[in-house]
Design a protein around this nucleic acid. Structure first.
Length: 424
RNA sequence: GGAGAAUUGGCAGAGUGGUCGAAUGCACUGGUCUUGAAAACCAGCGUACCGCAAGGUACCGGGGGUUCGAAUCCCUCAUUCUCCGCCA
């Protein structure tokens, strides 16, 4: 959520910034500001009435104590008008407040100045590309065929037990998952991130805090009996650790990591991209999260990008980094870098990581602040990134490291596995 | 799942209808004293919103209610603890 003060003072630049998303905010912001003005006016009235009520109540108390029952009762009689006035004002103020919040929830984050305008993924900028495209002297197989050839993943079994998008990993396939999780967590820990094991179900306040609600309501699995949501990413429980927190200035930087399964309904995405591991309802991911002083979020973002690069290089995967254009940047993010690895057999790039800075967009909702040098509370910046999401990494590893005699496992993973090659 | 108790400021802990945003202690910050430190003493010490300011309003686990007035009474939800039951 954007800060209301920002809308008051920088209305034009916010509208201008949101144009990069092809989002016309002028109407919403005008509505917000006019409601905000009414809200302040009504609120001032309400507080005046409340103040009068408080005074009279105090006096009644004193009168009773002095035994002046008669006068006290007279004073009581005065209050009924004020009270109904107070109730009316209260309703108005609450209604306005609700309207404002609802409108504010519709506004996405303002893109960072580096972000280019654009409508969709075709406008994303490739800012870096590394690694070699693998050379095959045979026709490489797509990962779903490799997975079945070497009995690593059984997609049909997942369908039987749960439904499409819930694969069953078996044998070396299951071990590979475990190895990747350990590898990613160890790398993150080495980089200073503190490992967490988080709840996989979260309450409504948490889903609101990181911005999944109300924006992506339909994308989360929901358990109505207990009013809980299955997490779509570890970002939700990990960032919400700091909901309603005021940090001392000395606490920065906060770096946390965690492995969790992620659950996404992916409502509406059927068809070509759902084959194999490309798009799942349940998948594993290691997430890195940072809580930063606003002055340090530039630096933090650079560090996170370098971290993800390092992982992909150690896995020997060709990758490229995209800076998403305004239209493709997620609702809550101010800037996002996507990492994609090249899938040799599918002949396309697969997104394996998304590293984003949210500036104060999440911390506004989270009420995540720190005491600044002037001992005032100020909103923190939050950032997060996948490091990394497993399925497409597995897909790329299988496809890019395949040989006619099997699949070579990159050296970085050897210490986590009791095999170095997947073969018949 | 059943029965009971509890939830107050960073922590501990008083307060059961009136001048309570809330005693007291600890912690913390500043000052006096000291060569320095400790101790002692003095002062300060929650969050948010409205307001140029003075000031005002709201907040005692969350929500709702009773009342002129609620930390205090009622309802409800959540959490914690104890006992019983069940169980990885």
């Amino acid at each position: 959520m954007l800060e209301i003060q920002r809308l008051r003072s920088e209305k034009e630049s916010v509208i201008e910034g949101l144009k990069k998303r092809h989002f016309d905010a002028s109407e919403i912001i005008s509505a917000v500001l006019s409601k905000d003005e009414q809200w302040r006016a009504e609120k001032t009235k309400l507080e005046e009435v409340a103040s009068k009520m408080n005074q009279i109540s105090k006096q009644i108390g004193i009168l009773f104590k002095e035994g002046k029952v008669q006068e006290a009762n007279e004073a009581k009689a005065q209050t009924s008008v004020l009270k109904s006035e107070e109730n009316t004002l209260k309703e108005k103020v609450d209604a306005l407040q609700n309207d404002i919040t609802e409108l504010m929830y519709q506004l996405p984050n303002v893109p960072n100045e580096k972000v280019k305008p654009g409508k969709s993924e075709v406008d994303n900028e490739t800012i870096e590309q590394r690694g070699e495209e693998p050379n095959f002297n045979f026709t490489p197989l797509p990962h779903w065929e490799l997975a079945s050839k070497y009995n690593l993943i059984d997609f049909e079994l997942g369908v039987k037990i749960t439904g499409a998008g819930f694969p069953m990993y078996i044998g070396k396939g299951a071990k590979l998952q475990r190895a990747l999780i350990s590898f990613f967590l160890d790398e993150a820990t080495d980089a200073g991130y503190v490992e967490h094991q988080a709840p996989l179900l979260v309450n409504e306040a948490s889903a609101l805090g990181t911005g999944q609600l109300p924006d992506k309501e339909g994308q989360m699995y929901y358990m109505p009996v207990d009013d809980l949501y299955l997490i779509p990413t570890a970002e939700v429980p990990l960032t919400n650790i700091y909901r309603d927190v005021i940090l001392p200035n000395s606490e920065f930087s906060i770096k946390i990591t965690g492995y969790t399964p992620c659950f996404r309904r992916e409502a509406g995405s059927y068809g070509k991209d759902v084959r194999g591991l490309n798009r799942l309802h349940q998948f594993d991911k290691v997430e890195i999260v940072r809580i930063e002083h606003p002055n340090n979020s530039d630096q933090a973002l650079v560090e996170m990008i370098d971290h993800v690069k390092g992982l992909l290089e150690k896995l020997g995967l060709q990758y490229r980094i995209l800076r998403l254009c305004g239209g493709d940047t997620g609702f809550a993010a101010a800037m996002t870098y996507d990492f994609e690895v090249y899938s040799a057999a599918q002949n396309k790039w697969l997104e394996v990581s998304s590293v984003s800075r949210f500036d104060t967009f999440q911390s506004t909702r989270l009420k995540l602040r720190f005491k600044n040098e002037d001992k005032k509370s100020q909103l923190c910046h939050t950032l997060n990134g996948s490091a990394l999401a497993l399925p497409r990494i597995v897909a790329a590893l299988l496809e890019n490291h395949q040989t006619e005699s099997g699949i070579e496992i990159p050296k970085a993973l050897h210490k986590y596995l009791n095999y170095t090659k997947i073969e018949d």
